[in-house]
Design a binder for these strands. Structure first.
Length: 272
DNA sequence: TGAGTATGTTCAG
DNA sequence: TGAACCTACTCAT
């Protein structure tokens, strides 16, 4: 489930598993073979994530850049090493574990300058200490684009995907089609703080759970409680099911070719 | 077991 | 705007 929390979790995991050791790097599938040869046997010095991008630093000007896209996955398996199954783009073998990368959108060897260029085009990442929410606010507060667009724009906020978008907007009672410039400063401050908390929780748990029944007194009484516990989200992919707070059926539409979910009652359109 | 669907991004037309 | 990438999960059979 590769939204930002997944990549930060991977960066943390790979740091623990592989940093400071020479890593056997290969490309069983072959599509990364030439670059794998360059990296093979080098010591992994540093890992980091920015939004949905993962970076492994193998010394000066040798950066492995991975973007999982929609399908990409990284396995985490204790040694001994097993024969690769399926299309493995990249395999990392460390002292105790190995990791197979399948189905990424990007897996490439880049320079420090190229890595810097990727960082430069990405917006504020709620999971990074160097995040600059003021820059995101400057973009949002000047924009006519709807919040649904701005929250998924990786050059504004890096790491938020479709699930966190739906959930954050619900939790703050915000209409997805509200123009950015109609958002009030205090609403933005609360939204950003919540994104930081939600994504951190996602890193900790390894999954997206924005709904903590014990922490939300607004939730309807049973029998809806059953549904509450089943899914752990308020709006995402709950089309037609009753809103867990007010009972209104969750609405769905396509917005820029992505699914958008919201509660028309809890997230009312602003009065004209 | 097979069909359907998806959390994302880039590129061709 | 639509196709491509080509994995993993859920649900129906």
């Amino acid at each position: 489930m590769p939204e930002g929390h997944t990549l930060h979790r991977l960066a943390r995991l790979h740091r623990r598993r592989y940093r400071g050791h020479p890593i056997a790097v290969s490309s069983p599938q072959g599509r990364f073979a030439t670059s794998a040869e360059v990296l093979d046997g080098r010591v992994l010095e540093r890992t980091e994530a920015h939004g949905k991008h993962l970076f492994h630093h193998y010394g000066p000007d040798l950066v492995l850049h991975v973007h999982l896209g929609l399908y990409g996955t990284f396995s985490d398996v204790p040694r001994p090493v097993e024969p690769p199954r399926g299309l493995v783009r990249l395999r990392l073998v460390g002292p105790s574990h190995f990791a197979d990368l399948r189905g990424p959108t990007a897996c490439e060897l880049i320079s420090d300058v190229e890595a810097a260029a990727i960082h430069a085009r990405l917006g504020a990442d709620p999971l990074r200490r160097d995040a600059d929410p003021e820059r995101a606010w400057a973009r949002i507060s000047r924009s006519r684009a709807p919040l649904a667009t701005l929250l998924m724009d990786q050059s504004v906020i890096a790491g938020v995907g479709n699930v966190y978008r739906a959930e954050a907007l619900f939790r703050h009672g915000l209409d997805p089609l509200l123009p950015g410039r109609a958002l009030r400063r205090e609403q933005w401050d609360a939204l950003w703080a919540d994104l930081v908390a939600l994504l951190r929780e996602g890193v900790r748990r390894g999954k997206i759970e924005t709904l903590r029944p014990e922490h939300d007194p607004r939730l309807l009484a049973p029998p809806d409680r059953g549904a509450v516990c089943a899914r752990r989200v308020y709006a995402y992919r709950r089309t037609g099911q009753p809103c867990l707070v007010c009972g209104t059926p969750i609405a769905h539409s396509e917005h820029l070719a992505r699914n958008l979910f919201w509660c028309p009652t809890c997230q009312p359109a602003a009065a004209a």
